[in-house]
Design a protein around this nucleic acid. Structure first.
Length: 517
RNA sequence: GGGUCGAUAGCUCAAUGGUAGAGCAGCGUCCUUUUAAGUCGUUGGUUGAGGGUUCGAAUCCCUCUCGACCCA
């Protein structure tokens, strides 16, 4: 600790800091403000102090050399999360980006004054320590502290050390506390960063180029979803927040960016649930001169690499525990490929399903326990069967192919059976993880599809996209991967909120005013 | 939007109509290799907000806020 020079206003020996007034001893915020004032009174400003760590905690532990006690110097910094005070020495633990490391602070090493101030530090304070590595008698690599610096004072107490923070509302609103005290949350959210990083590396290794396209769009296309609307004041127009990146990325295929991808935030003005957040992250990938079969190989390789290199199952397999079903999801081997129609026939037990009139489809769907809106089109009734009765049962990685043409207006029709599409929908763990298409690049067919979908609302058609297609888009495979859902799957999370740092919540009660208790 | 459940000390939780408690944290002691450290003592509450019933409400009723789960 940077002690004041001799002659400054520090008390020498004994208690450097005065005892606290008894009447505030119950109020941890007030106590900490009092301590801050007393630190400043002896010439220490913990918000100005600087400290340069040489190691993160994990790297410091690795730097320990067996048998070399107190010879390897390190400087580490982090938040105090454990304090074990033994009178004239203390074991404490600090938390940084890599985790925790133990520090051993002895009075006769750091000196009486510095030790007296150290004893006044609180859980939650951020400290830097310089010292050397040793192993305790229980075998824990620990920093024997020669000197320390209070880097930042924490004026609020941490949640309870053993149970952590469990109030879900506080976990989401004050995620910074959750990741300090709940190591599972920390690990899960760090894993998400590694997953995204590996996705980028995987694609870049295959010569894909990452691009950034607009969030503000005058036409919200590329998917069927209700958009958020916002206002641009200077231009005097409304914009939509994008609901997909598809149409922008395909323009770049026209422009000769043959392999492009975007990891983009998508906004859909719809409900919030365990599987839905109004803003979420989607990877979209487009590869010229490929098709949906090419995308199949790409996604299988990508997910396999994520399991193998990021998740790294302990037994060396490519299996991940699926929290909801208790099954192991096996990413190894050949993935199942099955036609949409065959799944429908199987689930309904009706080989003639697709030939039946609408009324019979409705009654048979209702017999399966589904509630059907009579105004739905037949393909919508069928798809309700798929999403409610089939999708949740597809736990192992499954490519569902040959979807009905009504389901995606941006895909190519199957040349042998134009009632279905050259697409797949990859389903894992009962969730749709990645749809992929042979992309429609015929501008006239695309226009027809758009017009049929738009109905009366022709103004919603992205005419500029159609113009781009008329300039010629190479045949291409494309796919979208819901990154949040992928993270749910790979990290064994129960809710999308567990893999999003700050999930959307209603505005809550205002936080206590700074300085107030 | 509907249904169910929940909100009590900084945190994790008790208390089912009759004096709001515990553990951790805090505060004050003891302890120079601890591992949820141990030890002795101790402070701390507008029971989410508002209204009602009652001699008496954390507890029962109503409204609201926020959240979780399920459904749409």
């Amino acid at each position: 600790m940077r002690l004041p020079r001799p002659g400054a206003n520090a008390t020498v020996g004994g208690s450097v800091m005065s005892d606290l007034p008894a009447d505030i001893s119950h109020d941890q915020h007030a106590v900490r403000r009092q301590k801050l004032a007393e630190l400043r009174a002896v010439g220490i400003d913990p918000f100005r102090a600087n400290f340069a760590p040489t190691h993160f905690s994990g790297d410091a532990v690795k730097a320990y050399v067996d048998g070399q006690e107190n010879t390897v110097p390190v400087a580490v910094a982090g938040r105090l999360v454990v304090i074990r005070d033994m009178g004239k020495s203390q074991f404490v633990k600090i938390l940084d980006q890599q985790g925790q490391i133990q520090l051993y602070v002895k009075k006769d090493v750091v000196g009486d004054e510095a030790y007296a101030i150290f004893k006044k530090l609180d859980l939650g304070d951020i400290v830097g320590a310089k010292g050397t590595l040793f192993k305790t008698k229980t075998g824990e690599v620990t920093v024997r502290v020669d000197s320390y610096t209070l880097v930042s004072k924490a004026l609020r107490p941490l949640p309870e050390k053993w149970h952590g923070l469990s109030d879900p509302e506080q976990v989401y609103r004050q995620r910074y506390l959750d990741v300090i005290v709940n190591s599972e949350s920390r690990e899960r959210l760090l894993l998400r960063s590694r997953i995204v990083s590996q996705v980028r590396r995987f694609l870049e290794d295959r010569k894909f180029i990452e691009v950034e396209t607009p969030v503000l769009e005058s036409t919200a296309g590329g998917a069927a979803a209700r958009p958020f609307v916002t206002r641009h004041n200077a231009l005097g127009v409304d914009f939509f927040l994008r609901i997909a990146t598809e149409l922008r990325l395909k323009r770049m295929l026209v422009g000769g960016f043959d392999r492009v991808f975007e990891v983009g935030r998508i906004f859909r003005n719809e409900g919030v649930s365990r599987r839905h957040n109004p803003e979420f992250t989607m990877l979209e990938v487009y590869q010229a001169y490929s098709d949906y079969r090419g995308m199949m190989a790409l996604i299988q390789e990508m997910l396999t690499s994520l399991v193998r290199d990021v998740i790294r199952p302990a037994d060396g397999s490519l299996k991940i525990k699926h929290a909801a079903s208790g099954q192991d999801i096996d990413f190894g081997g050949t993935w199942r490929e099955v036609r949409y129609k065959d799944l429908i026939k199987e689930a309904t037990g009706d080989a003639g399903w697709f030939e039946r009139p609408k009324a019979e489809k409705i009654s048979r769907a209702e017999a399966l326990g589904l509630s059907i809106n009579p105004s739905w089109e037949e393909f919508e009734i069928t798809n309700e069967v798929f999403s409610k009765k089939i999708e949740p049962t597809l736990i192992q990685p499954t490519f569902v192919t040959h979807l009905p043409k009504e389901l995606c207006p941006l895909a190519k029709l199957n040349p042998d059976d134009p009632s279905v599409l050259d697409v797949f929908e990859l389903t894992i763990g009962g969730m749709e993880v990645a749809p992929a298409y042979s992309e429609q690049n015929d501008p006239d067919t695309q226009r027809e599809m758009f017009e049929r979908q738009a109905g009366e609302e022709k103004q919603n058609i992205d005419q500029d996209f159609l113009l781009a297609l008329e300039h010629g888009m190479p045949p291409a495979g494309g796919m979208g991967v819901g990154i949040d859902r992928l993270c749910i799957l790979l990290t064994g999370a129960e809710s999308i909120r567990d893999v999003i740092l700050f999930p959307q919540l209603r505005p809550g009660a205002p936080a206590p005013e700074a300085g107030k208790s």
